[in-house]
Amino acid sequence: MPADFPAWARVYAFFRRWPEHGLIAEFHDRLRGRVRERECHEAEPTAGIIDAQSVRAAATVPAASRGYDGGKKVPGRKRHIVTDALGLLLAVAVTAANIGDRDAAAGLLVLRRLHRDITLMWADGGYTGSVVGWCRDKLALTLEIVKRTDDMAGFVVLPRRCGRAHVRVADELPPLARDYETLPATSEAMIRWSMVTRMSRRLGRPRSAGRH
């Protein structure tokens, strides 16, 4: 712990208490609105991006909440994340790595009921199938699939994608490069705190010339 912090047990008690009362999410969401307004956008987004990232899990992660992502060849957990078009976090869920993207999407995309201005969501080919129709029929949400074509080789930035914003979130702080947390909810809280740090830095930077 930093030298000017209280004892570890006291700090951790607050860390555990704040998510239980929704304080971290509220703090995070208010900062997100401030960042969007500073960058000349409405506080509430109208579109978003959904994606997932598999990460290795440390020995402290119990077997009940870890798995193996056969596609990425990663044993551990998967972070399912929704961002706005600026790469700012809207929703996060941490699951075992063997949970498919489409299986986790339904739980994340109910954010449409919290962010009612969102009418469009972009996703990669991992989200094709019945979830597209489900979004349209149940949430009045358009899930647009952005696919690679056969003539694309190597790394290609696809149109209307978030530019791997969720990966930058996960790698912003060294402890988030690997999942060490016993509880998935604690991992989710760490990701939100990482975003709080990023947004605070963005708000602390001088405005660019020409910005209103």
Rank of each mutant, 00 (worst) to 15 (best):
V156N: 11
E37V: 12
L158R: 15
G107F: 00
R160L: 08
A93C: 10
M199K: 10
V82N: 00
R34F: 05
L86Y: 12
T83R: 02
T149Q: 11
A170R: 07
V169E: 11
F155T: 12
A3C: 09
K138T: 13
L108P: 01
Q53R: 13
P75I: 00
H41P: 01
G129N: 05
R34I: 01
L89N: 15
A58Y: 08
C135L: 10
G33T: 06
P19N: 11
A177D: 06
V156F: 06
D137I: 03
L120A: 01
R198M: 14
S200I: 03
C135Y: 04
L158F: 07
D29F: 06
S200R: 12
R102E: 08
P19C: 09
G76Y: 02
A52H: 01
V167L: 09
W18D: 11
R205L: 13
E181M: 05
R113E: 14
G100N: 13
W134E: 14
A189T: 11
L158Y: 09
T119M: 01
D137N: 13
R34G: 02
S65F: 05
A9P: 01
T128I: 10
A3G: 08
G70H: 01
G125Y: 06
L90H: 14
S187G: 15
N98C: 02
R148Y: 04
D103M: 05
R211A: 13
P184I: 04
P45M: 10
W18E: 09
T60I: 02
Y127E: 05
A85M: 15
G76E: 06
L203G: 08
P174I: 00
R10H: 10
R161G: 08
A3L: 11
L109Y: 04
T83N: 13
A177Y: 00
V11C: 14
G71A: 07
T182K: 15
A7Q: 14
K78G: 01
I191T: 14
T149L: 02
I24V: 15
A165L: 11
R34Q: 13
A93N: 12
A52N: 13
T182W: 11
D137W: 03
L203Q: 11
P206F: 02
G100L: 05
A52L: 04
E172C: 07
P174C: 03
A170Q: 12
G133Q: 15
R178P: 04
W122E: 03
A153W: 01
A185Y: 02
D103P: 00
G100H: 13
V61Y: 12
D84I: 07
F155D: 14
G204H: 10
R178V: 02
A25F: 07
T128D: 10
V35Q: 05
C162Y: 09
T46V: 13
S130R: 14
V55Q: 03
W193I: 10
M195R: 10
A59Y: 07
R56I: 02
V35P: 04
R16M: 06
D151M: 05
V55F: 03
E181G: 04
H28Y: 02
S130T: 13
C162D: 15
